[in-house]
Design a protein around this nucleic acid. Structure first.
Lengths: 220, 220
DNA sequence: CAGCCCCCTACCCTTTCGTACAGGATCGCA
DNA sequence: TGCGATCCTGTACGAAAGGGTAGGGGGCTG
């Protein structure tokens, strides 16, 4: 925990340590986090722990032992789709992982499921439905809205190289190839090359599309 | 909290109709909406009504009379910054209006305040702080995080003409000028003109930047 | 009516982007 | 040691974007 910030990690409820499922909620939205925690704790008899970001969640996992379920907000400091979830699973291999999101496009939810998530929970869900979904997941099942699973093709998303990622940041800042080249201290043609391979990997038709996709998928 | 509700519009609590402040919460995130409603109702003694979108909120205002405060989610079906807030104020002239947002950039909050909002509440706030902010607003004051008020210049945002808006949608879909021209059944040069004026109004340096700004400000 | 705004079009030009083909340098790894 | 991946560079050309100037037509309003 960095000094000067309110500690968000705290255990909510613990009626029966031997039976109560342990759930970790990681979300930077205090409102959502507190609500979910209260619901799961009061109505679900679940031992809930909270975290305000991905790094904090990882630290909590290392400290408070394994969790039966880790709920990760998709739009959260440090979060990214394949990597963030994998890091959580690496520290918490026996527990389930599910994503929460308010504004993520359907493709994100589908990929999350393909990446092994046990569920994808839109924040537009009613609290009770959400509670039921969590129970389903804790029981070993999965939950995701039908619209999510039948989402469009969505970009294949080959891993981006570090250089490509830097160029992508330039695209998202709407900089020209020449500007990006100057910033990265390379030739303009090189930037063009990266933009091209980048667009192919993301399934983008041009630089603008690549920037939009990167924004939607929080790749930056 | 009521179990199993399908309609989102419902009055939460009404201990003393003559004294309890009336607040309307409009948010498509069931989780956030229910939480806020519960907090304001239980801990604040406020008569809370809910709506799941802007149109629904307007309907509720017309039906359940004037509200002391209307809380509008910025990322919500039908919502837009100058227009959505104005429409609410037109139907509810004597009440305050405040915005809630999870991911909006700081500039949005600042413009909201400049447009006459009584507050701007990030969803990252702790529930208790949020409750205090609502109380402050109900008391006739305003609330906004300092970072919001001191945000960067932000685009001037002259009103866009309908045609410009259509072209902007094309930009956000990463379509080329030629494609946009075909879709709108005009010449390509015309599209170029709109893109130029559009970029000037939004303060964008090129089409990509314009698309990013439009996305951030939910102008589409 | 004149003035203004919006919409559309045209011709011109420069810059940028997108794509292609053809390499070279470095590094890790089988 | 060769292989592959990554990163960088070069030349070249067509397509697209960006910018300017000029003008016509419709609609609304003082």
């Amino acid at each position: 925990m960095e000094p000067g910030q309110v500690p968000t990690a705290q255990t909510q409820h613990d009626p029966d340590p031997t039976e109560a499922p342990k759930v970790l909620i990681a979300d930077d939205h205090g409102l959502v986090r507190e609500t979910l925690a209260a619901y799961l704790s009061d109505a679900g008899g679940i031992a809930v722990t909270q975290a305000g970001g991905l790094e904090e969640a990882l630290a909590v996992i290392g400290q408070d032992g394994p969790f039966d379920l880790v709920l990760l907000d998709f739009t959260m400091p440090g979060m990214s789709l394949p990597d963030g979830m994998d890091r959580v699973r690496a520290l918490n291999p026996d527990g389930a992982v599910a994503l929460i999101s308010g504004t993520a496009p359907d493709g994100v939810g589908r990929r999350a499921m393909e990446c092994g998530a046990a569920g994808f929970l839109p924040k537009t869900m009613a609290p009770m439905a959400l509670l039921a979904a969590v129970a389903e997941i804790l029981g070993g099942g999965t939950y995701a809205p039908a619209a999510i699973l039948h989402a469009d093709p969505l970009p294949p998303h080959d891993r981006l190289t570090p250089r490509e990622r830097e160029v992508l940041e330039g695209l998202c800042a709407a900089r020209s190839n020449k500007e990006i080249a100057r910033d990265l201290d390379v030739q303009e043609v090189t930037v063009k090359l990266h933009v091209k391979t980048l667009s192919r990997k993301l399934g983008a038709r041009n630089r603008t599309h690549a920037a939009m996709i990167a924004r939607d998928l929080w790749l930056v």
